[in-house]
Amino acid sequence: MTICMVIARKEIRELLSNRNTMLTSLGVALVFAVIYGLGLTEEGSIGGVISVDGTLFFLSIMLGVFMAYSLTGHVFYKEKTDRIIETLLTSPATLRQIWLGKVLAVSAVSYILALIAVAVLLIITAIRNQGIVLPGGPVIFHIFLVVPVFIAAFVGLNGVAQLALGMKENRLLGFIIFIPLFAGLYGLGFSIGAVTTITWLYSALVLAGAWLLLVLAAFIVRFLSTERIVTSLG
């Protein structure tokens, strides 16, 4: 097992063993899935069948980002406040391996929670329509290929920021970046999600954007130094 995978495995185990965090995250995922599911209208329906494409498109990303934001704090920020990162930096693991291992772990757990929300939404829609409603090809592509990359990109950037910034700056970051981003995605999803037709172009554009952000995050890690992390510990 590579060092990255050792770190990822440990982070996943630690996240799953934190019952409060996991129950809260699961609860949030279910609440949003139910709200969105019940909010679907007949306006976007095709032949009397409610279209779930737009809603799934936004919900999967929005919840993925929300979970990623909440779990990134447990994995990156907490390791700084507990000062454990200092010991980890004296191990054979490089800074990039530590970052990547953590990104993999948070992305995997966040993605699974987002998938659970998607499944719940599909179940609600099936009940309302008295039959299974499958999303279109671009949305399936989006859920299985775009969303994980988007989540990883978000975790990657947020993780770098949490490692590099001091404790106060990290708290500010949450308000400055996360709240507008989350509110924007939520608003878009709720207002136009149900009536928007998702095309292959939309999915491809989001995928390209996600990859770009992920590459950017990986590039920024180059400039992260152990000294910066150690001198910004709480």
Binding site: M1, V6, K10, D82, I84, E86, T87, T90, P92
Partner: peptide, 26 residues
């Protein structure tokens, strides 16, 4: 290395903590 902080994860058991570092150091 043993710094001021013990470098241990509170949510993991003593055994899992050592097992994690043992894997890191192969």
């Amino acid at each position: 290395v043993l710094l001021e902080n013990d470098g241990l994860y509170e949510n993991l058991s003593g055994e899992d903590n050592l097992d994690y570092y043992a894997r890191l150091y192969e």
